[in-house]
C-alpha cells in the first residue's frame, strides 16, 4: 500500500523534475542568447581594439615621420647655410684680392685697355663723366686727359667700384660699367659653380 509520504515523495519528484526541466530550458535559452551577445561583444571589442591599434600605429608612424622630416629639413638647412657662408667668404676674398690687384702693373694695363674699349663706343660724346676709386683719380687723370684731349670730362670718386671705372655719356644718357665690382658681380655664377663642384 502506498503511504501518503510515498505519494508526497513521488509528487515532489515529479514537480522537481518538471521545474528542473523548465529551468534547464530557460538556462539553455539564456545561455544561447547571452552567449551569442557575449561572443558578438567580444568580436566587436576585438575589432575596436584592432582599429585603435592600427590608428595608434598610424599616429606613431605619423609622429615618427614628422620627427625624421624635421631633422632632415634642419640638416638640409644647415648644409645650405654652410655652403652659402663659404660662397660669401669666397666672394669677399675675391674682392679683397681685387683691391690688392689695383696696386699692380697688370691692373694699370687692364684699366687702359678697358678705357680704350669703352671710349671707342663713346667717341661721338663730348661730355663724359668718369667714376673711379680714390687711388686711381690722380693716377689716371693725366693719362685720360692726354689720350682724349678733345673731350670734356670730369672725374669723381666711387670707392664701391673696388677698381676700374664707370663712364657716362652725359649727352646721350648712356653709361658703361667697367668696374671690378661689376665684373665680380657678373662672375658670381662661375665662382659658385666652381666652388660647389669642389664642395660636392
Amino acid at each position: 500500500m502506498i503511504t501518503v509520504e510515498e505519494k508526497l515523495k513521488l509528487f515532489t519528484k515529479l514537480v522537481y523534475d518538471k521545474i528542473e526541466k523548465e529551468n534547464q530550458t530557460e538556462i539553455d535559452k539564456y545561455n544561447s542568447e547571452y552567449g551569442n551577445i557575449i561572443d558578438e561583444k567580444k568580436k566587436e571589442f576585438e575589432k575596436q581594439a584592432e582599429k585603435m591599434d592600427s590608428e595608434k600605429m598610424k599616429e606613431i608612424d605619423k609622429k615618427k615621420n614628422q620627427i625624421i622630416s624635421r631633422a632632415k629639413v634642419e640638416e638640409q638647412k644647415l648644409l645650405l647655410q654652410k655652403k652659402k657662408e663659404i660662397f660669401d667668404e669666397a666672394v669677399e676674398e675675391i674682392k679683397n684680392y681685387s683691391k690688392e690687384f689695383t696696386n699692380s702693373e697688370d691692373y694699370k694695363e687692364l684699366f687702359l685697355k678697358s678705357l680704350k674699349e669703352s671710349m671707342e663706343d663713346l667717341k661721338e660724346s663730348k661730355n663724359i663723366s668718369f667714376y673711379v676709386i680714390e687711388n686711381d683719380r690722380d693716377k689716371f687723370k693725366k693719362t685720360i686727359a692726354e689720350m682724349y684731349p678733345d673731350t670734356n670730362f670730369k672725374i669723381d670718386v666711387d670707392d664701391n667700384l673696388i677698381g676700374g671705372f664707370t663712364v657716362q655719356d652725359e649727352d646721350n644718357n648712356i653709361k658703361i660699367d667697367m668696374s671690378l665690382m661689376s665684373k665680380i658681380e657678373s662672375s658670381k655664377e662661375v665662382i659658385g659653380e666652381k666652388l660647389y663642384s669642389m664642395l660636392h
Binding site: Q76, L80, K83, K84, E189, G192
Partner: peptide
C-alpha cells in the same frame, strides 16, 4: 628665399 643661397652647378 629659404636662406640657402643660389643653386649652382
Amino acid at each position: 628665399i629659404d636662406g640657402g643661397g643660389n643653386v649652382f652647378g
